[in-house]
């Protein structure tokens, strides 16, 4: 397994006091905790910080960690053969576990509580799905590596591969639960749950807010002024939308029921947001017509502005 320098991660000396370790942890937790931090890599960093603290705050686990000796971070190593004696029966197969798994038996006393039923651990993963998948419902293949405890302090990493059926009706930021798919309970304790955090992948056309969808609808100035019937994409295919004459930029045109299905029944709406766009380059004829329009029109788009003195 790969060595991690827990002291370096927390930024403390190897002889730091328990108090220094706690302070260092708290400082870093405030900086990187995913519920608190704005750092996009915060979650990853917090995992390391939290793993380091969990081990170093427990005097027994810290002593056992120190016992592993000092290695370079990332260096492959094996615990000495007699390591772990006296902490459970230490039956690890050290190839397929993480360093953190070695210490999971400490502190909480997992595996040392005899016959007490211990509920399995809950796992939480992000499930990226597309808006189309949320619309139809989907099956998501999950491929995880999770720790498995044998109840005597032994632990190994096992692959957890299965498909989760995501019902239609989910939306961005929602959480789903797979009961029993978390860690195995010990001594008759119930298995934990696996939580899926639904996260929509970016879509080039649609933006989701709850079950409503938003779509930019580019219109030529003459379409917006005169009204038009245009084709608009929806998740169920294109539909024709009537643009009323005099449609301004930013106006929201509602396509009722064309959003995402809600849980149970009903569905959200699709809002097409009018956006007036002009050609990058004009043909001679277009230019001539627009000049004619400019000369003929009395329309003043800035009539709300105070009248200047024309300087």
């Amino acid at each position: 397994m790969k060595y991690k320098d827990y002291y370096e991660i927390l930024g403390v000396k190897r002889d730091a006091s328990a108090d220094d370790i706690r302070k260092a942890y708290r400082r870093l937790a405030r900086k990187y905790h995913p519920d608190v931090s704005e750092d996009p890599r915060g979650e990853e960093k917090f995992k390391d910080v939290s793993e380091a603290y969990k081990t170093l705050k427990d005097p027994e686990a810290r002593a056992a960690y120190d016992n592993l000796g000092k290695h370079r971070p990332g260096e492959e190593f094996r615990p000495p053969p007699d390591w772990g004696q006296g902490f459970g029966d230490g039956s690890f197969s050290s190839e397929d576990i993480d360093l953190s798994d070695l210490f999971a038996a400490f502190g909480g006393g997992r595996g040392r509580q005899g016959a007490m039923p211990i509920p399995g651990q809950d796992f939480e993963v992000t499930a990226p799905i597309s808006i189309e998948e949320a619309w139809r419902g989907t099956e998501l293949e999950l491929n995880l590596s999770v720790p498995e405890y044998d109840g005597k302090g032994g632990v190994r990493r096992v692959p957890l591969v299965f498909k989760a059926r995501i019902p239609k009706g989910v939306t961005d930021g929602e959480k789903l639960r797979l009961p029993g798919k978390g860690g195995k309970g010990l001594n008759g304790g119930p298995n934990g749950s696996l939580y899926l955090n639904i996260a929509f992948k970016p879509n080039p056309l649609f933006r989701a807010v709850g079950h409503d969808l938003y779509l930019d609808l580019p219109l030529a100035p003459w379409e917006a002024a005169l009204g038009a019937s245009v084709e608009v994409p929806t998740l169920a295919g294109s539909v024709r939308l009537k643009i009323p004459p005099g449609t301004n930029s930013g106006r929201k045109l509602r396509l009722s029921g064309r959003g995402l299905p809600r849980r149970g029944e009903g569905e959200g709406d699709l809002f097409a947001i009018a956006q007036i766009v002009v050609p990058d380059t004009l043909t001679e004829r277009e230019q001539a017509l627009l000049k004619e329009l400019a000369a003929a029109s009395k329309f003043d788009p800035r009539k709300a502005f105070p009248k200047g003195d024309g300087k």
């Binding site: 299965f162 498909k163 989760a164 059926r165 019902p167 929602e174 789903l176 639960r177 009961p179 849980r263």
Partner: peptide, 10 residues
Amino acid sequence: KLEITDAEWL
């Protein structure tokens, strides 16, 4: 062939 599990609402 993978086992399929239904994800439940919270």
